[in-house]
């Protein structure tokens, strides 16, 4: 290998290599983005198992369609759009009211570190519980756009691509989602017991 060891290939290079038949190149893309995608899908789908399946499915689909990727957006945006459609399809098949929800706030990954002060940890976990419960009470449409914007920090342009919406609609939907989340958080703060019960439909 004549290339420096520490050279990190760009997405475009990995995509090109993949299209040339280098499966390992695509493997690198998977490793590069799987955590980010998985995290977003967990937030969106509220189910770690489904999210993992959807993540894998998205990468497989993206591989199949890789030749149609024109580089107009970042690879992750393009991948996310595939994943988003896949996730929505899965959620529709498995309606939340017909399945058992995972309590997102109880995920081990979200527990605080041992070095954290007990008070801080308690506050943080309460906040996580509050926000996660509130997110779970949103409809899918609003939850999706909030996750993409606030957690994935996507620009409106990328949101537009992923959600297939004009930017004006992105802005208005995002605003409605924020207002709805605000209402839900306020409701939960006034009704603390609701935070520990299952989310509404």
């Amino acid at each position: 290998m004549s290339e420096p060891i520490n050279k990190i290939p760009k997405d475009e290079e990995l995509i090109q290599s993949t299209l040339m038949g280098d499966a390992d190149a695509y493997g690198q893309l998977v490793i590069r983005y799987q955590q980010r995608l998985y995290n977003s899908l967990v937030q969106l789908m509220r189910d770690t198992i489904e999210a993992e399946d959807a993540t894998q499915e998205a990468f497989v689909l993206a591989l199949r369609k890789l030749d149609s990727f024109r580089g107009q957006s970042s690879f992750f945006t393009w991948l996310y759009r595939i994943a988003f459609n896949s996730a929505v399809s899965r959620m529709r098949k498995k309606r939340p009211d017909l399945t058992s929800h995972q309590d997102m706030s109880k995920l081990e990954e979200w527990k605080g570190s041992s070095s954290e002060l007990p008070e801080d940890r308690l506050n943080r976990e309460e906040n996580v519980l509050l926000v996660q419960t509130a997110l779970g009470r949103l409809n899918e449409e609003h939850r999706a756009i909030l996750v993409l914007r606030e957690i994935d920090e996507m620009s409106y342009e990328d949101l537009s691509r992923v959600l297939d919406l004009p930017i004006g609609t992105v802005r208005s939907r995002l605003h409605r989602a924020r207002l709805q989340l605000k209402q839900e958080i306020e409701f939960l703060m006034n009704h603390p017991k609701q935070s520990t019960t299952s989310s509404k439909k």
Binding site: G27, Q35, Y38, N39, T48, Q56, L107, N127, I151, L181
Partner: peptide, 20 residues
């Protein structure tokens, strides 16, 4: 929202993606 903890995938999907 931005302070929400990240959820980590415990395994490498690359092999299973390529297999699938």
């Amino acid at each position: 929202l931005r302070a929400q903890p990240r959820v980590h995938l415990q395994r490498d999907l690359s092999a299973s993606v390529l297999d699938s």
